[in-house]
Simulated scan of single mutants.
Amino acid sequence: AMVGASANEVRPSFFVMKYLIDKGYRVIPVNPGQAGKDILGQKVFARLADIPEAIDMVDVFRASEAVPAIVDEVLTLTPLPKVIWTQLTVRHDEAARKAEAAGIQVVMN
């Protein structure tokens, strides 16, 4: 799942999503402002909890201050994703420790 996925072709999340899809990965976009629409042919969900299938990895394209709330949402999922990956410059060490304590691998910045 990609939190902060954008329909704007100049945004980094858009071209990373396109790259991953082109390489054969399934990417589920999460963006409350685009919920119900499609980005790159994929249905957009408002929240991680709205996705009706297990999520392997959560890729975060949001500001660092948004990471704690995203981790809290991730920790409500069943099963838990295996990985949380934040993009360059996105870092929140306390949230990372919380996710790691729950057994989730975290890659930040």
Rank of each mutant, 00 (worst) to 15 (best):
N31V: 11
G41W: 04
V106T: 12
A63I: 02
H92F: 12
R97G: 14
V27S: 08
D22V: 02
L20T: 03
R91W: 12
Q87A: 04
R47M: 14
V3D: 07
D22P: 01
A95C: 11
E73A: 09
V27N: 02
R26H: 14
T78A: 13
I104D: 10
K18G: 11
R11M: 08
V58R: 03
L48W: 02
E53H: 04
V107N: 02
P81S: 09
I55Y: 04
P68V: 05
V67S: 09
R62N: 09
P68H: 06
P79C: 08
R26P: 00
T86Q: 05
Q34V: 10
V58F: 11
K23G: 06
F61Y: 13
A49W: 03
I21V: 11
F61K: 03
G36P: 09
F15E: 06
S6W: 00
E9I: 15
S64W: 06
G103M: 07
G41K: 00
V30D: 03
G36E: 01
A99G: 10
A63E: 11
V90N: 01
E65S: 13
Y25M: 13
A46I: 09
K82S: 12
F45R: 01
V58T: 09
E65D: 15
I70H: 05
K43S: 12
V90K: 01
G33I: 04
G24D: 09
D56N: 13
V71C: 07
Y19V: 00
D93H: 13
A101L: 09
T76P: 09
W85L: 10
V60W: 01
A96R: 13
P79N: 00
P68A: 07
V27K: 04
M108F: 12
D93C: 00
P79Q: 05
M57C: 15
I104H: 04
K37R: 13
V60H: 03
V3R: 00
L40F: 12
A102E: 07
M17G: 15
L77Y: 12
K37N: 15
A49L: 10
K18I: 03
V44N: 07
Q105D: 11
I104E: 10
G4C: 04
A1I: 01
F45G: 05
V30Q: 03
R47G: 08
M2V: 15
T89F: 12
R47C: 13
A54Y: 01
E9H: 12
P32M: 10
P29V: 11
F45A: 08
A1K: 02
V71H: 10
A96G: 11
S6M: 06
V74D: 01
G36I: 05
A5K: 07
D50Q: 10
S6R: 02
L40V: 08
P29M: 10
T78Q: 14
D72A: 13
N109M: 13
G33R: 03
M2T: 04
R62L: 09
T78S: 15
Q34E: 15
A46T: 07
P12D: 08
